[in-house]
Simulated scan of single mutants.
Amino acid sequence: MLPKITIEYCPKCHWLLRAAYMSQEFLTTFDGAISEVTLRPSATNGRYTIFVNDSVVFDRKEQGGFLEIKELKQLVRDVVAPGKDLGHSDKKN
Rank of each mutant, 00 (worst) to 15 (best):
M1N: 13
L2Q: 14
L2R: 12
K4I: 01
K4P: 09
I5T: 05
T6L: 06
T6D: 09
T6I: 01
I7E: 08
Y9K: 03
C10F: 11
C10W: 10
K12M: 12
H14G: 09
W15S: 05
W15H: 07
W15A: 04
L16I: 05
L16P: 07
L17P: 11
R18A: 12
R18F: 07
A19F: 01
A20N: 08
A20R: 05
A20K: 07
M22V: 04
M22N: 10
S23H: 09
E25R: 11
E25A: 13
F26V: 03
F26N: 00
F26D: 01
L27T: 08
L27N: 14
F30T: 02
F30G: 01
A33G: 05
A33D: 12
A33K: 10
I34W: 08
I34C: 01
I34R: 00
I34M: 03
I34E: 05
I34V: 03
S35M: 04
S35Q: 10
E36V: 00
V37T: 02
V37K: 01
L39G: 00
L39P: 04
L39Q: 01
L39R: 00
T49M: 05
I50R: 03
I50Q: 02
N53V: 00
N53T: 04
N53E: 13
D54V: 00
D54S: 05
D54G: 00
S55R: 11
S55C: 06
V56D: 11
V57K: 02
V57Y: 05
F58N: 00
D59E: 07
D59H: 03
R60P: 03
E62F: 14
E62N: 09
Q63W: 06
G64A: 01
G65R: 01
F66C: 05
F66P: 00
L67C: 06
E68Y: 15
I69D: 13
I69F: 15
I69E: 13
I69K: 09
I69H: 14
E71V: 02
L72I: 04
L72N: 02
Q74Y: 11
V76N: 08
R77V: 01
R77N: 07
D78G: 05
V79R: 10
A81M: 00
A81K: 01
P82R: 00
G83P: 06
G83Y: 05
K84R: 11
D85E: 12
D85K: 09
D85Y: 08
D85S: 15
L86M: 04
L86P: 05
G87F: 08
H88K: 12
S89T: 07
D90F: 01
K91S: 12
K92A: 13
